[in-house]
Design a protein around this nucleic acid. Structure first.
Length: 202
DNA sequence: CTTGCGATCGCCT
DNA sequence: GGCGATCGCAAGC
């Protein structure tokens, strides 16, 4: 079974389902003729209007969050703490500002380049991509990717299916990380991760 | 215009 | 375990 780009329809489903289905898929970044490839091992679902942790809670729509209102498969990247970027993939239908937050991945290809894009000297492989902003550094992703489509073969960032070994994946769930402000939504088990993967965030 | 703060990380103790 | 970095963003005046 060959790996291929996931089509637009993959993202047009319930966000919790897409968040789980993205585990084990490949995130592929093309830069200067080089291919950087990682395997997604940890995600979180953000359910828009009804989710106190979501940037689009109560359908809040601003210059920053407008990308969440586009079709499934659209990139939403935001700046956090003035210095770091975080990657989301829009899901569900247009007008529902849902997304899947990509928290961690396993480096597969282009590791030399990823090490160069991260600031510090990395010896431990998992330190390249075991956090949402570490991942963005390693893949050199920033706000210029906003609005791009991960199902478009011409994009510099696409998501690809994995081999059929994914049938053997055991996926766990837990509450999402660092959303204490979300009150009654903070304990919802909307975080998914590959069981036994050492490449998950801390 | 002003102000308070964050879906993180790395360094410090 | 704690904390500071650093600035875009959104809310409030």
């Amino acid at each position: 079974m060959k790996t291929m780009i996931l089509n637009k329809k993959f993202y047009r489903h319930k966000t919790l389902r897409v968040a789980k289905n993205l585990i084990g898929k490949y995130l592929v970044r093309e830069i200067d003729g080089k291919k950087l490839r990682v395997k997604i091992v940890e995600t979180e679902a953000y359910l828009g209007k009804s989710d106190k942790a979501s940037h689009a809670f109560k359908n809040k729509r601003t210059d920053r969050t407008k990308y969440l209102y586009r079709c499934g498969g659209t990139v939403y990247i935001y700046l956090i703490y003035g210095i770091y970027y975080c990657l989301n993939i829009v899901t569900s239908s247009v007008y529902k500002p849902h997304s899947v937050f990509i928290r961690a991945a396993e480096p597969i290809e282009g590791i030399k380049e990823m090490k160069q894009f991260r600031k510090k000297n990395i010896n431990d492989l998992k330190e390249l991509t075991n956090g949402p902003s570490k991942l963005c550094q390693s893949l050199k992703l920033d706000k210029t990717f906003n609005g791009k489509k991960v199902y478009n073969p011409d994009s510099e960032l696409v998501i690809m299916s994995s081999e059929n070994v994914e049938k053997n994946y055991k996926i766990n769930k837990s509450p999402r990380i660092n959303i204490d402000y979300a009150r009654e939504d903070k304990d919802k088990k909307w975080r998914f991760y590959l069981s036994n993967s050492e490449f998950c965030s801390n």
